[in-house]
Amino acid sequence: MHDLIAAPFRNEHLVLRPGSQRAVKIGAAKFTDLENAVKAGRALPGWLVDVARRAWGVDTFDRPAHAAVLVRRPGPYEFSRATWELNLGCDFDCEHCYLAEKRFEGLDWAGKARLLHVMRDAGVVWLQITGGEPLIDPQFPAAYQLAHELGMQVELLSNGSQLGKPRMLELLAALPPTKMSLSVYGASPETYDGLTRRRGAFKRFTRGLDAAVAAGLNIDLSLIITNRNAHEADAMRAWADRLGVARREYANISPTIHGGAETLPSQSPEHLTQRAPFTGCPAGHTFFHADPFGRASICKVGREPNIDLPTEGVAGLARLGSIADSLMLRTGGCTGCQLSDTCRVCRPMAKVFQEAKAPLKNYCQHG
């Protein structure tokens, strides 16, 4: 496996190290120099050896350039980031989950591999793999390893239930994700198991979290605050602080991706936070989302219209920009709104709330 990745990024060029969030910007001349060294089978340029030593403490480049560095080619568009729902299946059944019915279905291995190659050819450098729970998919290890081999920086979103398994931890320790975001649903077995509706969920999560921290993985805890666990919010914060890992809080519960309102009663009203004004989004222009069938949409919320990537390939992404622009138009109940300049949700999210007949206070200033 390569030690470094060199990738075009918009009008710049970056050097990255798999598993690290740090990036080093280099000029076009140095990028060309590196390309030529790789093609000719020469040793790494001295300047790159110095960069790797300073940025990542790497000091053992005794391989030729083509073995140590993967040079990425630019994609035809501006896409550099993507998210991929490997599968919507999950071993938890959280009452607040925006996915609603979590069916375990999607592409076979040939389709998954095809999708990853399309993403690589589109220029995707940063890939977030999510679900459902991605780590329960039998093809997760192969998909994760292929994403690394293709030169992607992979972030994982997980419930952590599988991290206590030695083989899973060995894979992630050998090929570290740039970040692993783990959802936290409580600070006690009673609360955690009650929210996930799975007996033993807290025990599995705790075992996995401790193993991941001990393995040195870059952990980021997502504290999910609902009416069932709000009384343990301080305990969840203290837990993260004791472990010395980053934490974020998510308290605004969304309707399901189908516009269902069954998740909304999980909201803890006193923890409802005010979103920042929506000032634009790169969805559909420099970023896209792929569902378990490889259907590319502008994001996880604005899922239609979409593009069948395994069938259409990279060329299909040319339509995403116009789809994004059309989905951002103020329509329906938002047409002519006098507060639209300071609205706090994007149009696709507002549509989901409207379809769920959610209280205005959950998403609209008119509430």
Score class of each variant (00 low, 15 high):
P269H: 13
R198W: 03
R242V: 10
H285L: 08
L309R: 01
R207Q: 11
A100P: 00
A238D: 10
V58D: 05
T60F: 15
R167W: 14
Q267C: 05
G332Q: 06
P134N: 07
L99T: 14
F353S: 02
K203I: 08
S188P: 07
M328T: 07
A100C: 02
A28W: 05
N229A: 04
F104V: 12
V154R: 00
C346G: 08
E190S: 13
T311G: 03
A174H: 08
V301L: 10
L172F: 13
S181D: 06
K357F: 15
A212Q: 02
N36H: 09
L34Y: 06
L339G: 05
V124P: 02
H285S: 11
T273W: 13
D33V: 12
L34E: 05
A142V: 09
W126C: 02
R242L: 12
M152N: 07
E190K: 12
Q365F: 13
A356S: 08
P176T: 06
M180R: 00
C343A: 10
R22A: 14
D193A: 12
E155F: 10
K39W: 01
D210V: 13
I219P: 00
N159H: 08
G111N: 05
M180D: 02
F288S: 06
E101A: 12
L209T: 04
V69W: 03
L135Y: 01
P76D: 04
A82F: 04
L70A: 08
L171I: 10
L329C: 09
E105Q: 12
F293S: 11
R17A: 14
A67L: 11
D93L: 07
V118G: 01
K361V: 14
F31D: 03
P292R: 01
L107C: 14
G313S: 04
G132E: 04
C334M: 02
T196A: 12
A315D: 04
N87D: 12
L171H: 02
D234L: 14
E95Q: 07
K30Q: 14
A52I: 11
F31S: 04
W109N: 02
V245I: 05
S183R: 01
R197K: 11
C281L: 01
E12P: 00
G333M: 07
R247V: 12
H231Y: 09
R330L: 09
R275W: 14
T331R: 03
A187Y: 04
G321I: 01
V345D: 00
D59G: 06
P64N: 08
H258G: 06
P348T: 05
F104P: 01
W239N: 02
N11M: 10
N252V: 01
G19Q: 03
D33A: 15
T83R: 01
C337E: 05
S254K: 06
S80A: 14
A318T: 06
A43E: 13
P74K: 03
R199D: 11
D220P: 00
K179V: 15
A143D: 07
V38D: 01
K351G: 08
I5N: 01
L171R: 01
L317Q: 06
M1F: 15
C97Y: 10
A251F: 07
I323K: 00
H66A: 15
E232C: 03
D234T: 12
N87M: 05
G333C: 03
D341C: 09
T206L: 15
L16F: 15
P310C: 09
L272S: 03
A290C: 15
E149D: 12
H148I: 09
A113M: 02
V118K: 00
